[in-house]
């Protein structure tokens, strides 16, 4: 019962970026992946959701390997990503964006809808319901993107740089929302962040990625105070 990345290797056309990456996310757990720019963090999440081809190794969730499935089938299994830069559908309304998230939920829908809890906690999303997504501010867009992902009833939720381009205060909001999502959905969350300090403060466990390899892993609080981490995300060695 966990999301497992086993010895994964992948990359873009000509440049291999990840090599031999293994990690695991338990349900209900918040796991951070930190590392400097270009370490392969985005490549990692894109590989897990199937936007980049896995060249070697395996990917599995509670129902077994999904390495050979196409991207939309992985989403339907409950492996859901919030991509870097939010990627809302710009000319759909907030409500329509969230409705699309619900599509991926399929059979997993039912029971208490965690979306309601999110909307209650962050009413701004509800206020913007009928607005076109590209008219929202960056912080609001990130709220909608997270809500959309929750509407898909994720079993495992992958967040790629949710704080990117946000002001510090908005970043705090986003981290509060992530905490709430963890509480309400019970999903395992893989949080990829350049803002390592906050990510490590929020996470239970963490991995440090450097040059496409996992160089450290362990308790987030311990990693947060270690010199190695500073080296990894500041790119100093």
């Amino acid at each position: 019962m966990s999301l497992v990345v086993d010895n994964a290797e992948s990359g873009y056309d000509r440049a291999p970026i990840l090599s031999g990456v293994s990690l695991r996310v338990e349900p209900g757990e918040l796991v951070a992946v930190v590392g400097s720019n270009g370490a392969g963090k985005t490549t990692l999440v894109k590989t897990i959701v199937g936007q980049l081809a896995l060249r070697a190794g395996d990917l599995a969730d509670d129902d077994g390997s999904f390495a050979k499935l196409s991207s939309h089938r992985r989403a339907k299994r409950g492996v859901v990503m919030v991509p870097e830069g939010r990627k809302l559908f710009p000319r759909l309304t907030v409500g329509e964006n969230i409705a699309l998230g619900r599509r991926a939920a399929g059979k997993r829908a039912g029971g208490e809808d965690p979306v309601d809890a999110l909307l209650d906690a962050f009413p701004i999303v509800r206020e913007r319901w009928g607005q076109q997504a590209n008219l929202l501010s960056g912080g609001e867009q990130q709220m909608v993107a997270l809500t959309r992902a929750v509407a898909a009833r994720p079993r495992y939720l992958l967040l790629d740089e949710p704080s990117l381009g946000l002001s510090p205060l908005k970043t705090l909001d986003v981290f509060r929302l992530i905490e709430l999502i963890r509480e309400r959905t019970g999903a395992g969350i893989l949080l990829v962040e350049q803002m390592a300090d906050q990510a490590l403060a929020a996470a239970d466990r963490a991995y440090v990625l450097e040059h496409g390899r996992i160089v450290m892993e362990g308790d987030a609080a311990k990693l947060r105070s270690s010199d190695e981490v500073r080296r990894a995300y500041l790119g100093v060695s």
Partner: peptide, 20 residues
């Protein structure tokens, strides 16, 4: 809705379980 999603961003649409 699926059509409009695919039209605007096929990659993200597939993240929503829609097959472009």
């Amino acid at each position: 809705l699926m059509m409009r999603a695919v039209s605007q961003d096929p990659d993200t649409a597939s993240l929503m379980g829609v097959s472009p």
